[in-house]
Design a protein around this nucleic acid. Structure first.
Lengths: 304, 304
DNA sequence: AGAACTAATGCTCAGTCAGAGCATAAATGG
DNA sequence: CCATTTATGCTCTGACTGAGCATTAGTTCT
């Protein structure tokens, strides 16, 4: 099979087109993303593939095709995220300008795939996990560093307060905004983009990804958190049957927040999206929980 | 100035890259979009321009550049919408495959521009305007036609009910879903895409746009309606000072729904986004209203 | 000046929903 | 039987929303 890699040509200068994938799974109440070791780079990178103009009638089908062939994963839910095309984006050290159409894909299981590895989402964006309260990283590292960056600027202080302050309720959706603030404050470096300087030495603000892939992951997480509220996409990440606790744990993993158990169940009961199977799940200890199934036939608005 | 049009080349086959713009203004409580008469086509089309890989460091700046030079409009708020790249998308009758990165742009005034014309948004998507209740078009034309299309299919009936039924509350956000349902039911034709047949003769379901531009407009309207809820983007469409009624009228124009006047003002009063100017607006008749100003310095969540 | 008109503005009330907590039931292993 | 673990039922409160009633403040017409 001959794959036709799309190339963009501009008066002799070339652009390369790629379909990037943020493939998300949740294992043991921990969101993970699929990464590859790009050749040449020591940093993990998102998997990407070319658009084959002959094989792929649509962009999304192109993405599904190469993800299936390259990683063996079958994407359930797929959604286009954003198209990245800044001039700084290049493939190699002196490669062509790179245009990436990024997609979010959800998969059920976290089987390891050859040449790829699952990376904990909150290793990449540690400040986004608030399940155990405000992370130490935020309180002890990021806030002081941000305050240093802000100096006397009222605008900067205000922005920091809006994004990382304790006074306002923390909005899980605003992943990208928080990331961009940290980026501007030079606390999260990006390949080829941090002309303004390297981050503070010794400042460990999460695992770095190749290129601007951490930014893409931030976009994906924000979008996914937004979708959760009004679309039943969690079930794409869960097996056929599951307990309510596991469902709650998965939602918590994605939103990065703890939920009130009883209220969560109340919400579930109100929407009629689940049906009990009658079977029980037997954990090593404690009272067994009933297994539920997602009623795919009901596609209703307002889920969670 | 030499403009470098980006071309995508794939093993000899070319793709063309374009930056499409849905430029929205609101005049007299009516949302409008900027359209051009594309050469060769008798249908109005969205304006689009090339990415100049030399001039444009980012895609968004590329869009801003050509919109400013071609239409004379200065875009305030700009947001990337979606990248369209289906195989069927072509420029001319036998042109190259077209990859379009679509943007939404908001402008304050609706000055006419040379070679372009403002087109009423609800001429393109008439079923989206519910300010005067459910439009006649929906009740008398679309619903019967959809029912005919559904036949005995329970799934289709269910989808119709979810999108155009009266039983559920109508969700302004879901513009694209409604459009896609109508498209599948062959009630809104798309250039080069409606292989399955032309729409019912005599069925007037809004003004047709060239290519799949009506779909892009639907994407834009849905996104804009979504943004309104949690970002103060309305003010990009309003002059420096405005009355509360005008603000409400603009929001109503965009969401396609009437709002309760007193409740709207209550909401405005709660968020502290506006400040009174002390000046009064003197309409031809009736009590004058106070003019307000958007406090740009406050960028808070949850607005209107 | 007074009436008619237009729109701004103030206030209340009921319903819905989210957050938080109290209490109890059911199953398991020791 | 008891401790442990988790499921499950129920209540209370405050915030917000949708809807309506009532009044006020300017303008224009007569």
């Amino acid at each position: 099979m001959r794959v036709h890699r799309a190339k963009i040509r501009t008066m002799g200068r070339r652009l390369t087109l790629s379909l990037d994938a943020v493939i998300v799974a949740v294992t043991a109440d921990q969101p993970r993303i699929l990464t590859t070791r790009a050749r040449g780079s020591e940093l993990p990178a998102l998997p990407f593939g070319p658009l084959d103009t002959d094989l792929d009638p649509t962009l999304e089908l192109g993405l599904r095709r190469w993800v299936t062939t390259q990683t063996g994963h079958d994407l359930g839910y797929v959604e286009q995220l954003y198209t990245f095309g800044d001039r700084d984006r290049r493939l190699g050290a002196s490669g062509t300008r790179l245009l990436s159409i990024a997609y979010l894909g959800l998969v059920k299981e976290a089987q390891p795939s050859p040449g790829a590895a699952w990376l904990d989402c909150y290793e990449v964006l540690p400040w986004e996990d608030r399940r155990a309260g405000v992370a130490d990283l935020v309180a002890n590292v990021l806030r002081p560093a941000l305050a240093r960056w802000a100096g006397r600027s009222a605008a900067r202080r205000h922005r920091i307060d809006a994004n990382f302050g304790d006074r306002r309720p923390w909005d899980p959706i605003r992943v990208l905004e928080r990331y961009e603030l940290l980026y501007e404050a030079q606390l999260v470096p990006e390949y080829q983009r941090d002309h303004a300087g390297r981050p503070d030495a010794g400042l460990q603000s999460g695992t770095e990804l190749a290129y601007d892939h951490r930014r893409i992951v931030a976009t994906a997480l924000g979008r996914l958190r937004g979708k959760l509220k009004y679309r039943p996409v969690v079930f794409e990440l869960l097996p056929e049957t599951f307990t309510l606790l596991r469902l709650q744990g998965t939602v918590e993993a994605l939103t990065g927040r703890r939920l009130h158990k009883q209220n969560f169940r109340r919400l579930i009961a109100l929407g009629e999206l689940l049906e009990a199977t009658g079977t029980l799940d037997h954990p090593p200890r404690g009272r067994p929980a009933e297994l539920f199934r997602f009623r795919r036939e009901i596609v209703r608005a307002r889920v969670y």
